[in-house]
Structure formats: C-alpha cells, structure tokens
Design a protein around this nucleic acid. Structure first.
Length: 265
DNA sequence: GGTCATGTTGACTA
DNA sequence: TTAGTCAACATGAC
C-alpha cells in the first residue's frame, strides 16, 4: 500500500490524533523493524511529546519535544493506527507507542519490511543519510524537469527512484504513465520538454487525487487505473483495449499497449 | 507446494 | 560512471 498518498494519509492520521501527547511507554513486539536498539528507542521516546510531523516521500518524521525525531517507514504493508480501546489494536502491531492519556499509536506491519529510526535531524537524515530527492507532491515544474535532465534510464524506473524524486512507487508510477500515455520502458532521454511537463502535471493531479481520497482507490475519479489495476482488465481510458503487464526493473508494470505504445526512436 | 505482492538495499553485470 | 537484474528481507493470499 504505502506510497506518497498513503503515507500522507498516515501522517495526517498521526497529526489528527497523537500530537501534544506524552509518551509513557513503548512496547516492542517484534524488533525486526527497529533500526535502533529497542532500549534506545524506548529511552529516546518515554517522557517526550509528539510535537508535529513532516513527510518526505514515503517517510514520516515525528518531531519530539527534545528536538529529536522519530522516523517511520511503513514498508509494503504497514500503517499507523491510533486507538483508545485495547480491542482496537491492529492485527500486526509490531510496536505500540503508549501515551499518558491511555491511548496508543500502533505501528502495524504484516510483513516486517518497515523501518523505525530515531535521529537528531530530519533534514540531515533524509538528505544525507537516505539521499532522498525532493518530494513528488508539490514540486514545481522546473525542479521536476531538472531532476530528470541528463538521465538515460527507463521512465518508470526514474519515477520510482527515491533519490530523483521521492514518494512514487510501483503502482502510482503505473497510474501516472497510463494517464500520460507513455510506455513504462521509454527512456527518459526520449522524452522532450513537453512530455516531461505533462508527466509533472499528471503527477501533481494524480497524487492530489490520491491524497484527497485518503488513498481509497475506489473513490478515485473514473479513468483512474488504480480503480482496477490488473492484467487483462479493460483500459480505464475506454480505448476498448485490455491492460497488459511487463517487468521493469524487477517490478510489475501494468499498462495499456494501445494507449502507451512503445517508442523506437 | 509454488508464485506473487505496494519497498529498500546491496551485489553483480553489461 | 550509469543502469538493469536479481536476491534478500517476512508474511499472507491464491
């Protein structure tokens, strides 16, 4: 699930529920997701308040009252869940952040691909340690074009490269490329300025739609691939063709052969 | 039992 | 140096 629209939804969930509260305990059910020792995580958090949040790409940063940051990544299957009744704990709660008011922010993650860090500087962590590029949502057209200038790889790989722009993963890159009518294997250097500008526009619109629907795909407008992303499904553009799949950089790309023709030039 | 899956990283190869 | 492929991580669905 979690790409940029999903992670922004998670960030807002934390914002709406867990700010200005003091952590009373940290329960660690599985330490696979920890990038800091369990006792260090607990020591860093207990007694601190969640002050505000940031997001870059698929990472959420929670600013603590002592200026440190709790950094969360949700892997492929994770999400945060705030609850007040023990019965509402999610099924795969790997870490539970307990607050003094009795509520809990659960870090739920079926597959243990997530990451939890504590760091002194959000900016340094994301830019220097992770090497992340600018966030794909809200980036201006010029900066977006600069990110792709001089690149020779395939457009789908480039869109998914967090060091170029952050936040787009496999399924939202499919969405963007279908709407843009560009085959996922097209080389970046085959795309002229107009094509890059179109990709920028569609990226902004699609990610905004994803955020607006709280990443509930069935609520996306008609014509969105993510409403029914599957091989042999009808093309959402209504072109009478059916969707196909192809492997790009080891990931499954779903696309419409008729709306997204391969280029040979 | 096998295959595939929304992410990231590192090794290896061209 | 730049890119592409693949394996690894852990778990569930089909």
């Amino acid at each position: 699930m979690p790409e940029l629209p999903e992670v922004e939804t998670f960030r807002r969930h934390i914002d709406d529920n867990a700010l200005k509260q003091t952590v009373s305990d940290v329960i660690i059910n599985r330490d696979n997701v920890l990038e800091v020792p369990a006792d260090a995580l607990k020591a860093a958090l207990v007694g601190q308040q969640f002050e505000y949040t940031e997001r870059l790409g698929k990472y959420v940063g929670v600013a603590l009252s002592n200026q440190d940051w709790l950094v969360l990544h949700f892997g492929m299957t994770g999400h945060p869940q705030y609850y007040t009744e023990a019965d509402d704990a999610p099924s795969y709660e790997r870490v539970a952040f307990k607050f003094e008011n009795g509520a809990t922010l659960g870090y739920n993650n079926m597959r243990l691909f997530g990451e939890i860090y504590v760091t002194g500087s959000w900016d340094t962590f994301m830019q220097d340690e992770k090497g992340y590029g600018p966030d794909a949502h809200g980036i201006d057209a010029e900066t977006f074009a600069e990110c792709f200038a001089g690149r020779r790889g395939m457009i789908k790989s480039a869109l998914m490269n967090q060091k170029i722009i952050a936040g787009i993963g496999n399924i939202w890159s499919d969405e963007i490329l279908l709407q843009a009518g560009i085959h996922p294997k097209t080389s970046v250097n085959q795309l002229d300025d107009d094509a890059i500008h179109t990709i920028w526009e569609i990226t902004q619109r699609a990610l905004q739609a994803g955020i607006d629907t709280r990443a509930t795909y069935s609520d996306l407008p008609d014509g969105y691939l993510l409403r029914n992303r599957a091989k042999d499904a009808p093309c959402p553009n209504g072109c009478a063709g059916t969707l196909d799949k192809v492997t790009v950089s080891g990931r499954t790309a779903i696309f419409c052969p008729s709306c997204q023709p391969e280029r040979s030039d």
